[in-house]
Design a protein around this nucleic acid. Structure first.
Lengths: 156, 156
DNA sequence: TATAATAAGGTCAAAAATGGTCAGAGGTGA
DNA sequence: TCACCTCTGACCATTTTTGACCTTATTATA
């Protein structure tokens, strides 16, 4: 008794199985035509089943030649990363904590010295202490989530 | 599938690859004939994909014997580049321009693919479009300045 | 040598082509 | 039944494509 959402989910996951690199590109309108549903149903599926926490990243582009790209994350040999990832979602992280996390990733050989430095500087107070930002620690958490998700991408 | 603009972009970049000196000259009308599009489409491609932020300068000339010359900047002239970068990054920078700059740095071998992806994702809408931030483009500028400063450090 | 014709390229705004958001209606399982 | 999914539609945002009209340089000609 699959709901439509579950069907769409299955379909996309099947596509991903056959894709090399764990990356597929589809068009939202083509998908919604195929499943005879409204386009926003596709967004619903993506936002409930293809989030980083589920192990996917979605990138889209509007306009002519637009697309929806789904990238599968590879948690296979990084349970620890998965945990970390889940732990920091929706949290706030101080500069100190963030640096600790980055150092850990460096020590594990997951980030190089240069990558660590780049990110450390980005999330430093020097960059983030600005009236442009309402809550530094919350933004820092979002940035780190993005870093973890990128690291986990299969296609890099 | 891929948009026409992307095709034209690829075509020009391929020409540049084969050109020595990183300079090519084409005729707008010849290009638009070749791609069966209106001439102004070429301008669109140039202005969205071959800006200084993307690492290119475009020079044109009208009238008989007119041309469009595309010059790819190379990092060797890094004094000029530093200035250019400062100008490009300014106090605000759009996502498109920022991504162009990162792609350029990758192409020049200054950033690896992974570093590029990490930073690109950090400055993406996904991370920065949040009510936590008042002015995305301004924060993006701060982040890129930090990245450049890190890159330009001698000790890494 | 002016002047007209021709041969480039430039600008800008409207239309077309995608995808995004959000609130409310409709289902469904414990 | 009640909380929690799912589905829908009206409205929004971004990117690309097109076309009408404008500017500049060169060449031919009176």
């Amino acid at each position: 008794m699959g709901s439509l959402s579950r069907e769409i989910e299955k379909y996309l996951k099947a596509l991903l199985e056959n894709a090399k690199n764990g990356v597929i590109e589809v068009q939202r309108s083509a998908l919604s035509d195929f499943f005879e549903c409204v386009p926003s149903q596709i967004n619903y599926v993506l936002s409930t089943r293809f989030t980083p926490a589920h192990g996917y990243i979605v990138e889209t582009r509007r306009g002519g030649g637009g697309y929806v790209r789904i990238i599968r994350l590879n948690f296979a040999n990084s349970d620890k990363l998965k945990l970390l990832f889940e732990e920091i979602i929706g949290t706030e992280i101080s500069q100190n904590q963030a640096e600790g996390l980055l150092e850990y990733l460096k020590k594990e050989g997951i980030l190089t010295r240069k990558e660590t430095l780049l990110i450390k500087n980005i999330i430093s107070d020097k960059v983030l202490s600005t009236s442009l930002i309402k809550n530094q620690d919350a933004l820092r958490s979002r940035i780190l989530q993005s870093v973890l998700a990128t690291i986990l991408r299969e296609d890099i």
